[in-house]
Design a protein around this nucleic acid. Structure first.
Lengths: 337, 337
DNA sequence: ACGTCCGGGGCAATCGGTTGCCATCGTCGG
DNA sequence: CCGACGATGGCAACCGATTGCCCCGGACGT
């Protein structure tokens, strides 16, 4: 079913049909009505390839993820984020082209391929690092429109949507300190991610401000590393009494380590997870977490990406700040008051 | 950069360039070489819209997911599956168009839209139900090529890739019975999914075969429901001593309930999770699970979908069978030998 | 009554490729 | 030496839409 089938059946030219279907003036009301009725009867919809070619818009956004598949699945963030994106995209008839690649080199290659083949109208940059080559690539004049999902400090001239992780981290530390904890460890993710560094800094600064000495443990965001870091910290001579994990899965793994070692949570040891999720509500004890509406975040990001491709003024847009949801994994430090 | 820019620079016609680039005979070796070199220098790649229009192939597959976003994130299955798909798609330059919708009606609408707009070359059907309207829709003569990810019994005339869940379930039941458990509960997912029913049947049959009376608890795959089912079962007069959960997140939730109620796992109560994942290895105790290489499953599915669009003989293809990985959440039944 | 203006709609170019058909040229065999 | 054939490559149609330009006819003004 093509536009010319409709033209034939309606007894008008192809151009007239196009005008009628797109609500442009140039056709009489009754012709327009007839065309619309016929199109509807035939179940016609514009061939996306033809429309893309003519309009040079694909009605598709792209997103590349460079992460190890096995660990990608464990974090609830991405699926929720995707779902949030989709609600917004679907409303405007846009699709999302997703690609999961094993390395950052291939991620760059995919972006360049998408640009050269004009496959997408814009892309989302996730997990941005310091001096991210993708930002550099996409900041060039003729590059693909792009939106950074991450901190303004690494977005360069690109627009971004960010969350104030520093404030959240400060809140978490204040909360733990308020419970009397003095030995607090942060179990942080991959050091080269910008948001990791921002949380690192916020943690360190806030600890210093309170006169406490910060412990930052480095992991790769995986459960295995979260467990290892927890185990090592607990084995040290001055074991922390509180841990702030950089995602939900590491917090769960940390909780398991605590139990295995017979440390009672929260009596002897407090835990906070970042990325609140269903998981945090269904462990025992339930995990105190920094909660962020990731689905809404995804929608927000989608709206801003539309803004970017529509030529809106670039900017740095702040999403809601993750807030601490106290649950059962945090309590006053052992021996305090 | 278009093909005609190359033609101009190479001093040949557009057609010749096309032939050269596509490795077809009709151009001399040195012309071909020159064209290829120029194309490479200019960083040319075919515009996907133009190629789609001419070849009526989009080099894109589609997948629609109708699930609640918040719970989608919790299950590790999808992201791993996606990653598996991608490895195969990427090799052939294909992309994946993903859509997450809130209802099954919208899922159908999306499929029809994709067909009418010729947006994808083929689609994947996930979470197939009995009398699934999607199967009916896609079994029609002019429908989009489709592959069912699920049991042959609900695939109709469509090709499918399936896992022998019945065997896995039997193995799990046999294993628990071998440990002396007699009161075994299955915490099953949504009843209308075909794979749920298959597992239900296999569970019931195997229990009967062993002379045990089966308990099937119905949930919607969410952690909350998994917890509720576990709590209710444990409160009954003949509380089960073993549970087989239909996914990993419900098993985790069930474990939390057990701990909250002070039931020692595995001494007083054994747990098995379906969908082994990183999560299962990082709870305490670590969860015995029916393990399936979901990434490989995704790749397998992608290969078969290529088969379908290439017009291969339809068929029902069996993927590897999930095997039981005994960990620390299962032990002999209390009071047995 | 004639020129003008405007609404309606047809024609054809265009987007960037693929492909069938045909012209040209060189080489070979008879 | 001439005709046939194969290799090479140009031309143009085509995929299915959008869009600029022009033509036609009726209503209006003077």
């Amino acid at each position: 079913m093509t536009i010319s089938d409709i033209a034939e059946r309606a007894g008008v030219s192809i151009g007239a049909v196009s005008f009628a279907l797109n609500g442009r003036k140039g056709v009489s009301d009754k012709t327009r009505e007839r065309v619309l009725r016929i199109a509807d009867e035939m179940g016609w919809a514009p061939a996306s390839a033809a429309r893309s070619l003519a309009e040079s818009r694909t009605e598709t956004f792209g997103m590349v993820l460079a992460r190890d598949p096995r660990n990608l699945g464990a974090e609830s963030f991405y699926m929720q984020f995707l779902a949030g994106l989709e609600t917004e995209l679907a409303q405007r008839g846009y699709g999302l082209l997703l690609q999961v690649v094993p390395s950052r080199e291939e991620e760059l290659a995919t972006l360049q391929k998408w640009r050269r083949t004009r496959r997408v109208d814009g892309v989302l940059l996730m997990d941005v690092t310091l001096d991210d080559p993708r930002v550099e690539l996409l900041a060039q004049p003729n590059a693909l429109p792009a939106l950074v999902v991450g901190d303004p400090s690494v977005a360069g001239t690109l627009s971004c949507v960010w969350t104030d992780d520093a404030s959240s981290m400060e809140e978490a530390v204040r909360y733990l300190a308020g419970l009397g904890h003095t030995a607090i460890a942060r179990v942080g993710g991959l050091a080269h991610f910008a948001h990791t560094r921002i949380r690192d800094d916020a943690f360190t600064k806030q600890m210093s401000r309170l006169g406490l000495s910060p412990t930052v443990l480095r992991t790769d965001y995986t459960a295995a590393e979260g467990a290892r870091a927890t185990r090592e910290a607990l084995a040290s001579s001055v074991a922390p009494t509180a841990f702030v994990y950089d995602n939900d899965i590491m917090a769960v793994a940390g909780l398991a380590v605590a139990m295995e070692l017979g440390r009672r949570v929260p009596d002897e040891m407090s835990l906070i997870a970042w990325d609140d999720s269903v998981l945090c509500e269904h462990t025992f004890p339930r995990l105190t977490a920094l909660s962020h509406d990731v689905v809404a975040f995804g929608s927000h990001v989608a709206r801003r990406l539309f803004g970017v491709v529509d030529g809106a003024e670039p900017g740095h847009f702040k999403d809601s700040t993750p807030v601490l949801i106290p649950r059962a994994s945090t309590a006053p430090a052992p021996g305090s008051a």
